[in-house]
Design a protein around this nucleic acid. Sequence first.
DNA 1: TATGAATGAGCATTCATTCAT
DNA 2: CATGAATGAATGCTCATTCAT
Lengths: 206, 206, 206, 206
Amino acid sequence: MVQAAMKTGEDAARPGRRRPESLGKLKKAARKLFVERGYHATRPQDIAREAGLGHGTFYLHYDDKRACFLAFVEDARLELQHYVEARVSASDGSLERTIAASLNAIYDYSETHPGVLGAAMTDEAVIDAEGVQAVPLLVRWGREWAEQVRRHIADGSAWADYDADIVGQAILGAIHQTGLEGYRSGRKRQDLVDNLTRFLVRALRR
Amino acid sequence: MVQAAMKTGEDAARPGRRRPESLGKLKKAARKLFVERGYHATRPQDIAREAGLGHGTFYLHYDDKRACFLAFVEDARLELQHYVEARVSASDGSLERTIAASLNAIYDYSETHPGVLGAAMTDEAVIDAEGVQAVPLLVRWGREWAEQVRRHIADGSAWADYDADIVGQAILGAIHQTGLEGYRSGRKRQDLVDNLTRFLVRALRR
Amino acid sequence: MVQAAMKTGEDAARPGRRRPESLGKLKKAARKLFVERGYHATRPQDIAREAGLGHGTFYLHYDDKRACFLAFVEDARLELQHYVEARVSASDGSLERTIAASLNAIYDYSETHPGVLGAAMTDEAVIDAEGVQAVPLLVRWGREWAEQVRRHIADGSAWADYDADIVGQAILGAIHQTGLEGYRSGRKRQDLVDNLTRFLVRALRR
Amino acid sequence: MVQAAMKTGEDAARPGRRRPESLGKLKKAARKLFVERGYHATRPQDIAREAGLGHGTFYLHYDDKRACFLAFVEDARLELQHYVEARVSASDGSLERTIAASLNAIYDYSETHPGVLGAAMTDEAVIDAEGVQAVPLLVRWGREWAEQVRRHIADGSAWADYDADIVGQAILGAIHQTGLEGYRSGRKRQDLVDNLTRFLVRALRR
DNA sequence: TATGAATGAGCATTCATTCAT
DNA sequence: CATGAATGAATGCTCATTCAT
């Protein structure tokens, strides 16, 4: 689904028949609009037009608006995951470096993809009254932090009296809220990273 | 349930000439429905009927749905503030006690007013596409924590190398996220308070 | 539901508050359009406009388009019932007179309410794929004929070897089809009544 | 299932150059779906997929959905006609035998092709708001009955005071309605045939 | 001859808000 | 002060049909 060539502008390979480049266009358009206007103010029709496609084409690729938004969220999640994993695995495993690397990854992502995280974290309760399905994005990320905490407890670098799940959520919450407000009030990124790293390291390190 | 105040915000209804009964009924009904169904799934008409009033009466007291929601949020904010202030001022001023008292106040409020904080924190971007006005509730609470942090830095009980504003948001974020997910997953309140108190005290105390 | 006065054009009584004349207007408009265009080609919006009302008003009075159509059918059924009952009870009870009176009533109704019966008999399977509810109008009318047949069998004026239910449907079917096609091809009403009366009387009378 | 004919109507597809396989598949699929879901709930796309063909192929064989439905109706009409002709010509020409043979043919067809007659008789007003074209199937069948009646009047076996056209429609209506409701309510076929034969014979025979 | 992605007019329905009473 | 009938812009979604391949 996006292997190489693209007909309209690039070069057009000839394998199969036609390239389903529409989905790619829709994804890009959806991200742009969800970020710019938010979920409620974005109509499927707007996404289609932004993608240069007809209204109906949207429904060829997504069951409904909700499915499109969820796909956007999932994409963002995976992208951020790659960012973080790359930075973290490049650091030594120390608590401080892990945290700093994670924070830097998140801020890098935020800077190169402005607004995406904010849009992707739209409370799911808000996008569909019923069928609240799945675990919210923030909670999933909190669980990943819980995993980190567990690891550091196990290797003796973090306090053993913590409940990793609770502390994982706490860390994620601190990062999230700091990032949101830091962004709003125009704080310098290095200050945010420094303060937050210090804060979290002190909270965790035995 | 809150008759005085009501001028901090923007609605301030009709100042209460004779029987401000209707406003009280509407407030109660609005809180009930915003909590039960959320902002989008609650219609002014539903609020009016729940209050036992005609549909039009709603607009006698609120300019629009948004104003009604904002009034609900403001009320919740003030109520929680009273809870926290009462508990905190009853404790000695130590960092640990202050934090523990705050957390207990928040959890007490959540238990006696189930769902209210969750509903009140509905992202404002969601309730009005344009004119994102006002500072979100969470940020305001974060600022109050920043104030606390500043105090503790001043009296030497907290690390002086912190930027109080950043750390204040971090604390609020940790509390918020922990509370949300703790509620979702049914954690025991004492575990939440204990872990979080430990976490924050270690992060702050010099 | 249309008792006397009418505000807009007639005279406006002052009893209660306001007259729910909208429902009456909608009923009239719905009948007109269902008759002229059929169920599928009539949009709720068209009905509202025809009634001189806003789109939304339609949904103040009917849950949905289907409910509106069903109400139209029910009204037509009752009206025809009154026509038939009046004519039949005015005749002596003889088989021939009963049949002729019924047929005349039906043709009178058709002439004074052109197209209504045709529209009202729209197959219900057609108006809603699911929830085929209720017994089709034709079948209900067939049952009323079955009742007549049963009576005539009981008093010895009709053949006792008939199953009244089957024959009731047969009679109704003969009337229906004859009426439809007679209308289409412009047959003289008296010819239809005469032939059909003869046909049914000979079929039934012992 | 019907490969010859197909030119009585209006579609006539591509005359069958090479492999008219696709048309056959489409016919089968269309019949299945029109019977199972009805006209409105069946999309050309569904028919094509059911036939194992691409969506576009549908329009290679039919001008539009309506033409496809009409072809289905015509096929059913011809099939039933063959059934009836075979049975009727096998009987002696007496009124009673002719009627009984016809009824049996119809019920045989209904039993071996469940739902087909019901679907084929979908009111044409319903399948196309404008250009009500063509004579409805029922009316055409009514005319065939009129022909029978004329014959029996001519040979003296039926009352001469009947207008054959009117009575033909009446007969067809009685058969149709009885069949529909008999099917719905699960009447035994023999009862239906017996009662209806008696009913019609008595109505007609001088 | 066959395909299926693309289209966009069209539809039923909702809901925040107004205003005559 | 209170009412609730009325409004109509707006929304999410469907589907018969076309056309580039």
